[in-house]
């Protein structure tokens, strides 16, 4: 690992990756807020899109924690592609006439459509970051991220744990119904 050592804890790629992780955390947080405010339970495909968001976030987290590396960007792109497939599939599923879609729309679009846009934007952002990230090298483990980056990482981890709890309460330790109407563990 010494061959990869650099001296600066702050780098622009690391900062931009922190913003990427903050964006993913904000998306997961917004999905949570919507779920609990309007009591709209996520369907299996919605949950798969959240899993893809988590996997994208892990790639950003690796870039923030260890410094940027092509393999980390690869994880992000693969995850975003998977998420785009799941979101695209759900968009096509509800494209038929007289289909009102799943859940209520936000700013005129359903969440799976927004998710598809987010995943495409993530792939585009990765392409830009790969272009501007000339160093393409990993920082040493000792070069700890700054306080802002650490707070964003903690927020992301807490949101992922929140999703574990929420999904367990909704689906238990089995498969979720296609159109869930109540939390499995909160059934009377």
């Amino acid at each position: 690992m010494n061959a990869y050592k650099t001296s600066a804890a702050f780098t622009w790629p690391r900062f931009l990756n922190t913003l990427g992780l903050a964006g993913i955390s904000a998306t997961l947080l917004f999905a949570f807020v919507w779920q609990f405010m309007f009591n709209e339970l996520p369907c299996p495909l919605c949950l798969l899109q959240r899993v893809a968001l988590v996997m994208v976030g892990i790639g950003f987290l690796l870039n923030v924690r260890f410094g940027s590396a092509p393999s980390h960007y690869g994880l992000i792109i693969l995850s975003a592609l998977g998420g785009a497939v799941a979101a695209g599939r759900q968009t096509l599923l509800h494209m038929a006439p007289n289909d009102m879609g799943y859940g209520s729309p936000f700013l005129g679009l359903h969440f799976y459509t927004w998710a598809f846009i987010v995943f495409v934007l993530v792939i585009a952002a990765c392409a830009v970051l790969l272009v501007i990230d000339r160093a393409q090298s990993m920082l040493s483990n000792s070069a700890m991220p700054n306080l802002f980056a650490r707070l964003v990482m903690w927020l992301f981890v807490l949101l992922v744990i929140g999703n574990v709890v929420s999904t367990a309460v909704e689906c238990g330790f089995g498969a979720c119904p296609d159109n869930p109407t109540q939390y499995l563990w909160l059934k009377h």
């Binding site: 299996p44 949950l47 899993v51 988590v54 996997m55 892990i58 992301f156 992922v160 574990v164 999904t167």
Partner: peptide
Amino acid sequence: IMVLPFVTGAIAA
């Protein structure tokens, strides 16, 4: 098991 990928994702994070 729908919660499983979230568990492994949380472990990874």
